[in-house]
């Protein structure tokens, strides 16, 4: 189980290989990579700046991973989230989960990114040709999180 907040980019292949660690119990790795787009809400985006709450961010991510672990049969989970300046096409976040079977890995991976979107203290600022502005939270992110309630009984 690991969560990391860093300025640098990450190598998805290397991260997934490290998560598997040649563990023969791993039958599935599900991963999600969030990328910076060049357009948001009809505005051109030249650059993103991601800010976070050092200390709380790591605690919040670890709590989200613990919730996923309680709901699914996860072997390992990884969240890497970048902060600082990020240009369109660059990676922002990686969520990856290993499990014996694909369904637990898929479900836990989607749960982790849905919860991260609403519960982890990150904020995006966009720079567009018109100037800089803070990104507004989306109601659809709250709905995606709410769709996971109540917890499914463990199989």
């Amino acid at each position: 189980m690991a969560v990391r907040v860093q300025r640098e980019d990450f190598d998805v292949g290397a991260e997934l290989a490290a998560l598997q660690r040649d563990d023969p119990r791993v039958g599935a790795i599900a991963s999600f990579v969030g990328l910076a787009r060049d357009c948001n809400d009809g505005r051109q985006v030249l650059e993103l700046t991601l800010e976070h709450y050092p200390g709380m961010t790591e605690r919040a991510l670890e709590d989200i991973v613990a919730q996923a672990r309680a709901r699914w049969d996860i072997l390992e989970a990884l969240i890497v989230h970048r902060v600082g300046t990020i240009a369109p096409t660059e990676r922002i976040v990686l969520v990856a989960v290993t499990s014996a079977h694909r369904q637990h890995a898929f479900d836990a991976c989607r749960f982790l990114i849905d919860y991260l979107k609403t519960d982890a203290p990150f904020w995006k600022k966009e720079r567009s040709p018109e100037g800089s502005h803070w990104v507004e939270a989306r109601a659809s992110d709250e709905q995606a999180r709410a769709a996971w309630q109540p917890p499914e009984p463990r199989r």
């Binding site: 982890a120 203290p121 995006k124």
Partner: peptide
Amino acid sequence: VAFFPPVTGG
């Protein structure tokens, strides 16, 4: 105690 806007990471 921290105050902040709704979060927008990911």
